[in-house]
Computed example of a mutant assay.
Amino acid sequence: MRVQEPLNLHDQLPALPTPESFCTDATLTKHMVPAAHGFAFSVKKGDRFRVVDLHGEQVVDFMAWVHGKPSTWLEKMSTAYTRYHLSGIQPAIGECLWTNADRPILRVTADTVKVHDMTFMSCFPQLYEKKGLRGHRSCAQNIFEAMQEFGMENILEIAEPFNIFQNTPNYSLKRLGSSKPGDYLEFEALQDVVCAVSSCPYDLDGFNGGKITDVAVVVAQKKASTT
């Protein structure tokens, strides 16, 4: 049984949009994220975006921060708070990711895979160095590099990752790589946010299908009303 959310949470949220409405009355901007690299972007409250696996079986580390003061990264998406609200279960369509201030930050509005991970940290430089792979790219470094544009100064300021398209055995008995070409996860921003993604560079033990590939981020920004 999931933890009971505040009774008025869903009353406070707008009606759940349909996937077909993603392209309606919105300006779409597509960003290509090269294999084994990262990308950061801002999204206004009420806008939506999709993280798209272009080739299949590619994990994407995802992080988000409430976009207040550019140099402050205190309130951020927390997988621990999200697990609490969802009783350890990954979010279903219509459910939210939560911040470390116990506020919903993003809502899942479409999901073609429904297999993701909220338990593992991002891979980091020392992980590869201990395996004798000095200089190997990592999700932590990718996201830190991408977030420097928004004022991040230390790699330790990165958040806990929501590992999109990553299958973990305690969630599912599906094969390790669950996403297919064109699969996506779509979010609606419930706050003004800065998000960052990394096309995970982990290429060992068959992870990521054994080959790191490009992914895409598509942002749907609402068009200004003409009325």
Results as ranks from 00 to 15, higher is better:
30 K>I: 09
146 A>C: 15
39 F>A: 11
95 E>T: 00
181 P>G: 06
29 T>K: 14
34 P>E: 12
163 N>D: 08
131 K>Q: 02
53 D>Q: 04
133 L>K: 03
98 W>D: 00
158 I>F: 00
150 F>N: 12
35 A>G: 15
51 V>L: 11
102 D>H: 14
145 E>C: 13
203 D>S: 08
170 N>L: 07
39 F>S: 07
9 L>T: 15
48 R>G: 03
162 F>E: 05
57 E>I: 04
215 V>F: 00
153 E>Y: 06
24 T>Q: 14
15 A>I: 09
66 V>C: 06
223 K>I: 03
122 S>C: 15
21 S>H: 08
6 P>F: 13
136 H>Y: 11
159 A>C: 12
38 G>L: 00
149 E>H: 14
94 G>Y: 08
110 A>S: 15
225 S>E: 10
76 K>V: 07
70 P>W: 10
41 F>C: 05
169 P>N: 02
197 V>F: 09
46 G>T: 08
59 V>N: 01
137 R>I: 05
189 A>D: 15
97 L>Q: 05
18 T>P: 01
101 A>N: 12
200 C>W: 00
153 E>V: 03
192 D>S: 11
120 F>I: 13
110 A>E: 13
22 F>L: 05
34 P>M: 04
211 K>F: 02
101 A>H: 14
89 I>P: 00
227 T>W: 10
170 N>C: 07
207 F>C: 06
80 A>F: 15
101 A>D: 13
147 M>V: 09
43 V>L: 09
181 P>M: 07
202 Y>V: 04
187 F>G: 09
16 L>T: 09
49 F>S: 05
141 Q>K: 11
180 K>H: 12
41 F>I: 04
158 I>V: 07
162 F>G: 01
118 M>V: 04
7 L>V: 09
102 D>F: 13
136 H>R: 12
129 E>L: 01
76 K>E: 10
224 A>R: 13
55 H>P: 02
185 L>A: 03
208 N>R: 11
96 C>H: 04
227 T>K: 13
16 L>W: 07
119 T>M: 01
122 S>F: 14
106 L>K: 06
150 F>M: 13
214 D>Q: 09
137 R>M: 03
156 L>R: 15
146 A>I: 10
211 K>R: 11
81 Y>S: 14
38 G>M: 05
27 T>G: 08
210 G>T: 06
57 E>M: 04
77 M>T: 13
99 T>R: 15
78 S>L: 05
19 P>N: 11
79 T>H: 11
218 V>L: 01
28 L>V: 09
204 L>F: 02
155 I>C: 01
104 P>L: 06
219 V>T: 12
168 T>F: 11
203 D>T: 11
152 M>A: 09
